[in-house]
């Protein structure tokens, strides 16, 4: 318990460095634009995702799920996804099903609870990895173009690109504000258990408080951004059909895209074939 607490309190401000986070997010967004996955047409990938992101929910067949899981694992590897994202994936799967398993045991369940939970875990894992492949593997621009082709609101696709543009700046600013607290603040000593709890509370409080300056600083930025957007015709484009057409004319489906779909389909068919055998 104490060990966990100390690890936790260290992780928030000290070990968990903003630089690391920033580089991981950027790496995830832009560091893998030369992979097989990134070169695929975003529309094809979204269709592909719709299959692997939805179908596993409906299927309870173990060998089919296992097959799908293996496939999305391969595509995830192909997409060169950043380590942090994979770590989050693992954490996410555990938090969704692992704790449920523990709770089931606590309420008097037995080993019979394991198979349904295993199925559930496979489902969650497959769906998560499919989304990791598509959303981390594609660069944000292509992704937002793909979404737009399917008629997603223009504001969403703008938001995606803008978020990637802003994130490094926001993080730097947040980092500097936190640094101000670190340089000028006086954190409680954290040698004892009580001290560690207080240190943890202190850190959480600091993160909360740091949003006060951050809100004001970001407000200043947004004003320039929105004025500049106005000058650069953002609102004009949002209601103009030709602009959308021009934007989307850059998307082209190649043989590689179809091949990717066909190979995935072949694999799925094989899985179904296997599941009917056993």
């Amino acid at each position: 318990m104490e060990h966990m607490m100390s690890k936790l309190s260290e992780s928030i401000l000290d070990k968990f460095s903003m630089d690391f986070l920033r580089s991981q997010v950027l790496k995830n967004a832009y560091g893998n634009d030369d992979t097989v996955i990134a070169a695929l047409d975003p529309r094809i990938l979204i269709v592909w995702y719709l299959f692997f992101g939805v179908v596993p929910w409906f299927v309870n067949d173990l060998s089919f799920l296992l097959g799908c899981f293996l496939l999305v694992m391969v595509t995830t590897l192909l997409a060169h996804v950043a380590g942090l994202v994979l770590f989050l994936f693992a954490l996410g799967v555990f938090s969704q099903t692992g704790y449920l398993f523990l709770a089931t045991l606590l309420f008097g369940g037995d080993a019979s609870a394991i198979p349904p939970l295993l199925v559930l875990t496979l489902k969650v894992a497959t769906i998560s990895l499919a989304s990791v492949t598509v959303f981390s593997g594609l660069d944000p621009d292509r992704l937002s173009n793909g979404l737009m082709w399917y008629g997603c609101p223009e504001r969403l696709s703008f938001s995606i690109c803008y978020a990637y543009r802003m994130l490094p700046m926001l993080m730097e600013e947040f980092q500097n504000v936190l640094l101000s607290y670190r340089l000028r603040g006086n954190p409680p000593a954290h040698d004892t258990l009580w001290g560690k709890v207080r240190y943890l509370i202190y850190q959480v409080k600091i993160i909360m408080e740091s949003f006060y300056p951050l809100m004001l600083n970001t407000a200043k930025r947004s004003r320039t951004t929105v004025e500049a957007l106005e000058l650069r015709g953002y609102r004009y484009a949002a209601v103009n059909k030709t602009v959308k057409k021009i934007k989307l004319s850059a998307l082209k489906v190649s043989y590689n895209d179809l091949l990717f779909l066909a190979l995935s389909a072949l694999w799925v068919a094989l899985c179904i074939f296997c599941s009917t055998l056993f």
Binding site: M4, S95, R155, L167, M171, F211, L214, T218, R223, V226
Partner: peptide
């Protein structure tokens, strides 16, 4: 639009952290 952009950036940044801050159970 300004409010949208402002809230999006700030809350987005914050949720990014919630994904990363470990959860623990007692």
């Amino acid at each position: 639009l300004m409010i949208f952009v402002l809230t999006m950036s700030l809350y987005g940044l914050a949720t990014l952290f919630t994904e990363l801050i470990p959860k623990f159970q007692v």
